[in-house]
Simulated scan of single mutants.
Amino acid sequence: LSALRCSLQFLGNIAAGNGDSQNSIWKCAFPDLFLTCLMYSDEKIVAYCCMVLFTCLNSEKVRELLDPGNLTVALRVLKVYKEQLESEWSFLIVTDHLLKCPELVKALYAKLSNQERVTLLELMMAKVSESHPVTSEEMNAFMRHADFLAGCFQEKCEAVLKLTSAADAESEEALVTIRLLDVLCEMTSNNGQLEHLQALPGLLETAIDTLRLTHLAGKQAVNIFTATHAMTGQEEISHPAVGFKSHLIRLIGNLCYKNKENQDKV
């Protein structure tokens, strides 16, 4: 184990700032060696492997991950992040590289479990929430993410109604819908993406319909969407559906901001 750890550290060191070394390592290690190391039970080996992978990646190499045989590497990085939340390198691989390729995000999303989708959406949220200026390339990627996520939200929004049933109180599909809404709210709070999202067909209507349905569900029985629902303190803090309606209202408000056409629809 020590030899493998040291070897990976050495590879990370020689790859840093050296394009030729990065290309040589990539040629020899991708995808099999990376995948093998990412599957190790030893956290340090996984972390060092992520460091090497991060150092070697660029936009061209990220596109290689789109190959069905190579997609497993990206999937594994996400699993590493989910299992080892302290893993800074896996976080950086996703936020600094993978999220710059909308096609890859789309391909990944299709392969992920609902829990993993929540993790990916949380990473997207972290990226969208960053305060530093974005490049035009990043903005284009965000807009394509917005198209995709809005489509997912429109398709799956009614899943959140499962939370009205005690049996489905932990519905993972509903949690994905909640996270989709969170990311869309954040995106519509950004002027660069707002106009694009305001023009997306059906998004505003879906948000209004979902608000109407959740409001109705809350009136028909006492559940998480009931306005006077007396929650315990712990439930109030921990239940992910708390605030869902207010986030819908926030999304609707953002979509109507300085947009008369959308205002008239509401």
Rank of each mutant, 00 (worst) to 15 (best):
L1N: 13
R5I: 15
R5P: 13
C6N: 10
G12D: 00
A15F: 00
A16E: 04
S21A: 15
A29H: 12
F30D: 01
P31D: 05
P31M: 06
L35M: 13
E43L: 14
V46R: 09
V46I: 14
Y48L: 09
V52I: 05
C56N: 10
L57T: 04
K61R: 15
E64W: 00
L65K: 05
L65P: 03
G69V: 02
G69S: 05
N70E: 02
L71F: 03
L75M: 15
L78E: 06
K82C: 10
E83R: 11
Q84A: 07
E86S: 15
S87N: 15
S90T: 06
F91V: 02
V94D: 00
H97T: 05
L98C: 06
L98I: 07
K100M: 12
K100C: 13
L108H: 07
Y109E: 01
Y109D: 02
Q115L: 11
E116A: 12
R117P: 00
E122C: 09
A126L: 13
A126R: 14
V128I: 13
P133H: 07
S136V: 15
E138N: 02
E138K: 04
M139K: 12
A141H: 06
M143S: 14
H145Q: 02
D147V: 10
A150W: 01
F153N: 08
E155Y: 11
E158W: 11
A159D: 15
A159F: 15
K162E: 13
L163R: 12
A166W: 00
D168E: 15
S171E: 05
E172Y: 06
A174V: 03
V176L: 09
I178A: 12
L181E: 01
L184H: 09
L197H: 07
L197D: 06
Q198C: 03
I208G: 01
I208H: 04
D209M: 06
L216D: 15
A217P: 05
A217G: 08
A217C: 05
A217E: 10
N223W: 10
T228E: 14
A230W: 01
M231Y: 09
E235P: 07
E235H: 10
I237D: 09
S238D: 12
K245M: 13
S246W: 13
I249E: 14
I249F: 09
I249H: 09
L251E: 07
C256E: 01
C256G: 01
N259Y: 10
E261G: 03
K265W: 11
V266L: 15
